[in-house]
């Protein structure tokens, strides 16, 4: 398998150290989860990959090219992002989906056929296309935001705790969707979660970050069964207890 993203000795500091010398590899076509307690720097790391934030040092490569050498707009079109909250833009559902494509090709701003394709891809009904984003349920909104990210045809999608605003049923459905999109579109997905069970359910491989430092990286199931590090074990057992 080819490496899609290489994270190399990445540090970030804003007064305090947020990320400390993180290195990891994400392979093409996999679902990779970054998990850890809240405040550990997971979201920051994700935001460094599409350069919504700037790292202090280190390198990140996308398809072998240093992202600092790339045009940032091009980078962001190739690396989509789904946020914790759906954050639909004011307007109709189709306008949300077509926002990305419409930035570069004005004719696509009203290309409802295109919007419909992505709406169906995320399992939503055609009749939602013309609805105001605000009238949708949070689960539906999050699906629209996934469709919106997909409409740029990115090779990678970053997801920042995409189910944290959802109840369990909606969460499981979104997880199914994530797996299906990964399978059908061969899109690489990096998902941030504080929920280790979610990491197990959706991801092939994972990385645990605690207080800005990488503790362990590997196959998610192996990490859960045979944690190599004491902290991993602690986090897993602590978290599982917390859930029970």
């Amino acid at each position: 398998m080819d490496e899609k993203i290489i994270i190399e000795n990445v540090c970030q500091e804003k007064g305090v150290k947020i990320l400390d010398n993180i290195s990891a590899k994400v392979y093409d076509g996999e679902i990779f989860s970054i998990f850890g307690p809240s405040g550990s720097g997971k979201t920051t790391l994700l935001r460094l990959i599409n350069r919504l934030d700037e790292k202090t040092s280190g390198h990140i490569y996308l398809d072998g090219v240093d992202i600092d050498e790339m045009d940032v707009i091009t980078l962001r079109r190739r690396v989509g992002m789904v946020f914790q909250l759906p954050a639909l833009l004011p307007g109709k559902v189709y306008q949300n989906i077509l926002f990305g494509p419409g930035l570069f090709d004005r004719s696509k701003r009203d290309d409802t056929a295109l919007a419909l394709r992505y709406l169906k891809l995320v399992g939503l009904d055609e009749e939602l296309l013309d609805r105001d984003g605000e009238t949708l349920s949070v689960g539906q909104q999050q699906r629209v935001s996934i469709a919106r990210a997909l409409a740029n045809e990115p090779g990678v999608i970053l997801m920042d705790e995409p189910t944290s605003a959802l109840d369990l049923t909606a969460t499981l459905k979104i997880e199914e969707l994530i797996k299906r999109l990964n399978r059908e579109l061969k899109v690489t997905i990096v998902i941030v979660t504080h929920n280790i069970e979610q990491a197990v359910r959706v991801s092939d491989r994972s990385m645990l970050i605690v207080r800005g430092r990488k503790i362990e990286e590997g196959k998610t199931k192996d990490m859960l069964k045979n944690p190599k590090e004491e902290l991993t074990e602690e986090f897993i057992s602590g978290h599982l207890e917390e859930v029970r």
Partner: peptide
Amino acid sequence: RMEIEVALSLGATSRQAADR
């Protein structure tokens, strides 16, 4: 802020993201 970061993440320039 959220709206702007969403727009940026979809490839908007600062100007486009701040449009509204």
